[in-house]
Simulated scan of single mutants.
Amino acid sequence: MQCGVETMNDCERSPGRTGLRVNFTEKGEVKERREKFLTAKYGTHQMSLIRKRLAVEMWLYDELQKLFDPPNEAVDVDIDEILDMDTDDIRRSHLFSLLSNSSCKRSEKDISKFISDLLDRAKTL
């Protein structure tokens, strides 16, 4: 929208400015209204847990990329599934079978170290 101020006579202005008027001209269509999103605020403790979880997931992603030669063939490891298992022995055997059945070209020593590191990090969650 454009605002213009016109006077009856630009040369002669009255002290009370009685001849002033404002004209609004429409300039195209009105832009669509912005979408509003509601974002949740988390408490300090909850944000700390979220950051810790995110750090473990990012570490897991990076390590899986290192384990698999072409990264697009990486295995999807679900942390929640690992955490829901009862003991570390069950977790370890599940992860080992998951990684050994895939196209992982690393040695068993590298896989065992990855599993141990993952289990240590999972205990912090």
Rank of each mutant, 00 (worst) to 15 (best):
10 D>S: 15
11 C>G: 14
11 C>F: 15
13 R>I: 15
15 P>Y: 06
15 P>W: 05
16 G>E: 13
17 R>C: 08
18 T>C: 11
19 G>V: 02
20 L>T: 07
21 R>Q: 09
22 V>L: 14
22 V>W: 12
22 V>Y: 11
22 V>P: 01
25 T>F: 05
25 T>K: 06
26 E>T: 04
27 K>D: 04
29 E>C: 10
29 E>R: 08
30 V>E: 13
31 K>V: 09
32 E>F: 10
34 R>W: 10
35 E>R: 09
37 F>I: 13
37 F>A: 09
37 F>E: 10
37 F>M: 09
42 Y>T: 02
43 G>E: 03
43 G>D: 01
44 T>P: 01
44 T>V: 05
48 S>Q: 06
51 R>M: 07
51 R>N: 07
55 A>V: 03
55 A>K: 14
55 A>M: 10
56 V>E: 02
57 E>P: 03
57 E>A: 14
57 E>R: 06
58 M>D: 15
60 L>M: 08
60 L>T: 02
61 Y>V: 10
61 Y>D: 15
61 Y>I: 08
64 L>V: 01
66 K>N: 07
67 L>F: 03
67 L>T: 00
68 F>A: 01
69 D>I: 10
69 D>K: 08
70 P>I: 03
72 N>V: 07
73 E>Q: 10
75 V>G: 00
77 V>Y: 00
78 D>W: 00
80 D>H: 08
80 D>N: 14
81 E>N: 12
84 D>N: 12
85 M>D: 02
85 M>Q: 05
87 T>I: 10
87 T>P: 07
90 I>L: 14
91 R>A: 06
92 R>P: 03
93 S>F: 12
96 F>C: 02
97 S>Y: 09
99 L>P: 03
99 L>H: 01
100 S>Q: 09
104 C>P: 00
107 S>A: 05
107 S>K: 06
108 E>K: 09
